[in-house]
């Protein structure tokens, strides 16, 4: 923020000078815009750094201290970029089996909470038994978060996998990590999941899901879903405002922690490389 302000100040002064300087000014401004874009990308990569939008819980000092603590924890554990739909492996120290590491592989079906309260849920099917584990991102007992397949799905929450056929969330616990080439965009997995026949845990026909196949329900279910739908809510600006942090505040927050996040990113990459030196299993 400070540097931005400095630049803007300089731009104000420059307006008086010749057109050559004006051109330079223009270049600078586009740079600022690019920087802005990069920083705003962080809201997808590090969503938990944004505070709770509920105004009753907001306090700038608390949020700052919380962010500092999060970064302090991140200096000891590399929490990679991941999304709902990515496949993760979490290694944690377990007080119930001393001296051993507890490792769980699964697909991330939900991310929730902000700040130090951030959580994510992993789901997998082991021995024909669906298992879910809820992890806290900043829990100090977690030793390693490894990303095995980085991708997004069509929906924000994949809770419908609980009602899906088992092959859609069965993953090999010894899966090798798939590495994306540097700088490539995050692939979006467009598989359409087939759900088991009813009864379900929720009424999925009312949730506007994109990642499911045709639900094969009688007509009355769709009619009822249409009747209870609230299509006007997406135009409710006030609701949107209450649910989200404004862009200016996001910029302020991410500019403050930008340099430290980048340092951590570089550090994480180095750690990753060190892992690759290990001899892999022979076929």
């Amino acid at each position: 923020m400070l540097c931005l302000r400095k630049i803007s100040k300089t731009t104000k002064g420059l307006r008086v000078y010749s057109s050559v300087v004006k051109q330079a000014n223009h270049v600078k401004r586009t740079n600022i815009n690019n920087l802005r874009k990069d920083v705003l990308e962080y809201r997808h990569v590090y969503p938990e750094f944004l505070p709770d939008p509920n105004i009753e819980f907001r306090n700038t000092l608390r949020e700052k201290l919380e962010r500092n603590d999060m970064l302090a924890r991140r200096s000891h554990i590399n929490i990679p970029e991941f999304y709902v739909g990515s496949i993760l492996a979490v290694e944690s120290s377990d007080p119930h089996s001393l001296g051993k590491m507890h490792r769980f592989v699964g697909i991330c079906i939900q991310r929730q909470g902000c700040g130090l309260r951030a959580q994510f849920t992993l789901r997998n099917i082991i021995d024909h038994q669906g298992i879910e584990i809820l992890y806290e991102m900043y829990d100090p007992a977690i030793q390693k978060v490894e990303i095995l397949r980085l991708e997004k799905r069509l929906d924000d929450e994949l809770l419908y996998l609980r009602d899906a056929l088992p092959e859609y969330c069965t993953f090999d616990p010894n899966m090798e990590p798939e590495i994306l080439p540097e700088g490539s965009p995050i692939p979006i997995n467009e598989t359409k999941v087939k759900l088991k026949p009813r009864p379900w845990l929720e009424r999925w026909e009312r949730k506007n899901l994109l990642g499911v196949q045709d639900l094969e329900l009688p007509e009355k279910f769709y009619k009822k879903a249409e009747a209870v739908a609230k299509p006007w809510e997406k135009y409710d600006l006030m609701k949107e405002y209450r649910k989200t942090i404004p862009e200016e505040e996001q910029l302020e927050i991410f500019n403050e922690i930008d340099s430290r996040l980048q340092k951590l990113h570089v550090q994480g990459k180095k750690m990753k490389k060190r892992v690759f030196v290990k001899p892999t299993k022979l076929a």
Partner: peptide, 14 residues
């Protein structure tokens, strides 16, 4: 209290 700057907690065998 576990400090956030400390390394992760490991439950070692007694």
């Amino acid at each position: 209290v576990h400090q956030f700057g400390d390394p992760s907690i490991v439950y070692a065998e007694k």
